[in-house]
Each structure stands twice: as structure tokens, then as C-alpha cells.
């Protein structure tokens, strides 16, 4: 008699995934907080640099049905010429286990800062973007999105 090959069936996979999400397998501590995002920003751009609000626009859908892939848009108001330009933008999630999502660097031939990408969100939360200008000043903006199905443990 041929034995059934012990591969992963769809049913087991779904059961396992649901169980892992619901059970205490994942310690609560993996989730971050707004303070973690502050820390991550300080770590990324250097401590005790003041972050001003403004110039940066973050766009997220108001409701994201699926936290595994949420379209994100970041715009920064800047002429992008030799005297004033954006050097770097970094994106942070307050509630994700790892606050830093990605960073972006711009060169001499970059156009205006308008980035689009897709991110993972481990729950309804604010997504913050911080831009660094060539004079070293930091500017930030944020957007909130309600996530109906969180990226379980990302």
C-alpha cells in the first residue's frame, strides 16, 4: 500500500497559521509603540536632532483590507536644486515589530520626491515619514490607516 506523502496540505497550513496568530505563540512584546518609532527615528537620523512637522505628505488608504500589502505614497515639498534638496526619506510604522520600514536616498538627478511602494502593516496605526534635507533639517508627516486583516506577524 502506498503511504500518503506527508506534505503540507492547504488545510493544515491554514489551521497552523490561524492557530499561530490566535495562540500565545507570539509574545505581545513583539509589537511596537509610538515611542519605538521615536527611538527608531533618533537611531536612524542621529539622536537629539529636532524633527519639525510639515513639508512631508504621506498617503495611505483610509482602510486597508489586507495588511500584507498596503500602498504607500510619500511626497516632500522641495525644489530639489543645488541649494535645497532632499537627501533622504525614511518610513516608520509605530505598531510594527520593527518600526523602520524602509529608507530612500536621492541623488543629483532625482526629480521631486514622490515615492510609491507597498508596505506591511501589523495593525491599524500611523505611518510616519521623515525627510532629511541637505542642510540637515528633519521634516515629518504621517497618515493613519485602519487595517482589517493585519499582517499577522508580518
Amino acid at each position: 500500500m502506498k503511504r500518503k506523502h506527508p506534505t503540507l496540505s492547504r488545510r493544515t497550513a491554514v489551521r497552523g497559521a490561524v492557530a499561530a496568530c490566535l495562540s500565545g505563540l507570539v509574545p505581545i512584546s513583539v509589537w511596537g509603540s509610538p515611542e519605538d518609532a521615536d527611538l527608531a527615528i533618533a537611531e536612524h537620523f542621529g539622536a537629539d536632532k529636532p524633527v519639525s512637522n510639515g513639508r512631508v505628505t504621506v498617503k495611505l488608504p483610509p482602510i486597508s483590507e489586507n495588511g500584507y500589502s498596503v500602498p504607500l505614497e510619500v511626497l516632500v515639498k522641495s525644489p530639489m536644486n543645488d541649494t535645497e534638496r532632499v537627501v533622504q526619506v525614511a518610513v516608520f510604522a509605530e505598531e510594527n515589530p520593527l518600526a523602520k520600514i524602509a529608507s530612500y536616498n536621492f541623488g543629483k538627478h532625482s526629480g521631486p520626491v514622490h515615492i510609491q511602494t507597498r508596505i506591511r502593516m501589523g495593525g491599524s496605526q500611523r505611518i510616519r515619514a521623515v525627510a532629511e534635507l541637505n542642510d540637515g533639517s528633519l521634516w515629518s508627516g504621517y497618515a493613519f490607516s485602519v487595517v482589517t486583516l493585519a499582517a499577522c506577524v508580518l
Binding site: 529608507s103 536616498n105 532625482s110 511602494t117
Partner: peptide
Amino acid sequence: YLGEQVFASEFFPGVAANPYLSFLVR
């Protein structure tokens, strides 16, 4: 572009699968 870095990015686990990016170049 033209031998110079025009755009660069560092990804962390918070970037969705099949990373997609759009940016502007002059």
C-alpha cells in the same frame, strides 16, 4: 544613471513581498 546614484533604498521586513517602487528622475 549616468554613472551616478540617482535613487537608492534600504528595505526592512516591513516592505511587502515582491517589492514595488516608483520614483521620479530628471
